[in-house]
Nucleic acid binder design. Structure first.
Lengths: 157, 157
DNA sequence: TGCTATTTGTTGCGTGTGCAACGATTGGCG
DNA sequence: CGCCAATCGTTGCACACGCAACAAATAGCA
């Protein structure tokens, strides 16, 4: 009898989570089944492919990943010989991270597939719509950061 | 030296996950700290507040939540006296679920706060932008479903 | 210099999640 | 009717995550 106060399927955080979850699981399947990578590992790989040399903390700008998550992902990648650590002699608290040749090979194999999934997703949008979407995501993300300045981790709704 | 194949901060699945994670953690804080609800529990509560009478499987349309997640959330809510189960005599495999008065009270307390968070998020968008966003999310969600027809769970990128 | 606070990264712990297997019930079809 | 497949929901298991505490190193400041 009582009219609904919230309609879940119209609730923005819920819808964002459903969409993010769908895209993530599509990608995670590739990362895992094809390359044995977790999502944190993928993020480390792609960051090192992008920046060549980074510290563990740089992997999680704004606390998108928890530092313990990064630590374990890096350990796993190092054990597989995909990433190497080098001491930073200027600040021995941190370490420089870099891809090994094997790591780079995986990066060069995964990246195109990830981009292909992204492109298949975006294929239903026009060029203008993509720009609009990007702008809207930026606005919302910025606003969300200003509201809850805590760590993110994964996310539901 | 090698140019990046993927720029993570431009990668749509990543950005979607960051945004979804930020909004989720803002909401989860309210659910948990203020009402002792997990996110699956919140979804059950809001669904029952919306539909009055549902089965456990209805809580997870399209497999947005795993059925085991729903099962445990319902058990916890029943133990707290917020939800009741009734056998469905027409099909004794499933059970009808409904909010108790206490459950409804919590629903009526949480829902406005959740909507307030949503409104604060959306406050940076114009009315037209909100409609556009909604449309874009729908298009992408539909496309994402057509690509990977598996369960969702949470989601990263 | 010396002392405290801060930062980087690791690890133990508790918890929540997905998966797969299962019991119970129902549906489909010969 | 009788049998096998499919569906609803629960639970044991393994695993990943976040949190908090921690060690090591550095920064800030008197």
């Amino acid at each position: 009898m009582p009219e609904p106060l919230v309609v879940l399927e119209d609730f923005l955080p819920y819808r964002l989570n459903v969409l993010a979850g769908l895209t993530s699981s599509a990608l995670a399947q590739i990362y895992a089944e094809r390359f044995g990578l977790s999502i944190p590992a993928w993020r480390v790989i792609v960051t090192l492919g992008q920046y060549e040399l980074r510290t563990a903390r740089d992997m999680a700008p704004d606390g998108v990943m928890h530092k313990s998550t990064v630590s374990r992902a890096v350990s796993a990648l190092e054990k597989r010989g995909l990433v190497v650590r080098r001491p930073n002699l200027d600040d021995r608290r941190e370490e420089w991270l870099a891809l090994t040749p094997e790591g780079r090979a995986i990066y060069e194999a995964v990246a195109p597939e990830a981009l292909a999934v992204e492109e298949r997703l975006l294929s239903v949008l026009t060029s203008d719509e993509r720009k609009t979407l990007s702008s809207l995501i930026d606005k919302l993300t910025q606003q969300a950061r200003s509201l809850g300045p805590r760590d993110v981790g994964e996310g539901n709704a």
